[in-house]
C-alpha cells in the first residue's frame, strides 16, 4: 500500500458526503494525533478511549491489525491506524491510546479498537469551517477523508470511519495477500 493514492474522488460525490455529515451528525469531533498530524473521528462514532494495554497478536493477519483486546468480556480487534494509512508506526509511549469506535458494516454494528499516538481533545467544528477533501496531495487515501476541518489556521483531517475501518476491505487485504503467497509472489 502506498502512502499517496492517486484515486480521485469526484467533487460532487465528496460534497454529498459532506452534506450528509452536516445533516445527520453533531458537529463535534474527537481529535488525535498520528505522526504529528491531526486527525478526527465524529464523536458519535467514538464509544470510549482506553489506555494502551496488552494486545494479543493474531497470527497471519496484515500488519495493520495490531491484535485483539478484552473490552469487558468482548474480544475486539485493534487496528494500528498509522500502518493502516501506510505511515510509519511510532513506538508505544505513555500517551498511546486505543480509541473504541463503532462502525456499521452490512447493517451490523462492529466495534473496533483504533490505536493512535495520542488523543487531543473534543472540538466543535461548524459546517462553514468544513472543506472538501483535496483531490490529491493528502498523506492518506482520499476516500478515507470525509472532510477537512478548519481550526484557526490549521486543518484537521476528519476521517470517514466506515471506509477506514471497513471490515470487508480489511479482510480482503488479507485474502489478497494469501493468494499472492500461494502464487509465490509474496516473500
Amino acid at each position: 500500500m502506498t502512502a499517496k493514492n492517486s484515486k480521485i474522488v469526484p467533487a460532487n460525490q465528496a460534497l454529498s458526503e459532506l452534506d450528509y455529515a452536516n445533516f445527520d451528525e453533531s458537529s463535534q469531533y474527537l481529535t488525535f494525533s498520528l505522526n504529528q498530524e491531526l486527525y478526527a473521528f465524529g464523536i458519535l462514532h467514538v464509544k470510549e478511549i482506553l489506555e494502551y494495554g496488552k494486545v494479543t497478536k493474531v497470527p497471519m493477519m496484515p500488519e495493520f491489525i495490531e491484535g485483539v483486546i478484552n473490552l469487558r468480556g468482548e474480544v475486539i480487534p485493534v487496528v494500528n491506524l498509522a500502518r493502516r494509512f501506510g505511515l510509519a508506526a511510532n513506538n508505544v509511549t505513555r500517551r498511546t491510546c486505543i480509541v473504541i469506535v463503532e462502525v456499521s458494516s452490512d447493517d451490523s454494528a462492529q466495534v473496533i479498537g483504533v490505536m493512535v499516538d495520542s488523543v487531543s481533545e473534543v472540538l466543535e467544528i461548524t459546517s462553514d469551517n468544513l472543506r472538501n477533501a483535496p483531490s490529491f496531495g493528502a498523506a492518506i487515501r482520499t476516500d478515507f477523508i470525509r472532510a477537512m476541518g478548519k481550526i484557526d489556521d490549521d486543518f484537521v483531517v476528519i476521517l470517514a470511519e466506515d471506509k477506514v475501518l471497513s471490515i470487508a476491505e480489511m479482510a480482503m487485504v488479507e485474502q489478497v495477500r494469501e493468494l499472492a503467497e500461494q502464487e509465490g509472489l509474496a516473500p
Binding site: M61, V75, I167
Partner: peptide, 27 residues
Amino acid sequence: IKPLGKLFSRVGCVSGSTILGNGTVAL
C-alpha cells in the same frame, strides 16, 4: 469461548479466543 469476528475469519489455525484470569485475550 469468545468468537473472533468476521475480520479474522480467514485465520485457519485459530478457532476462537478466550479471556484468561489476568484479563488478557488468549487465542
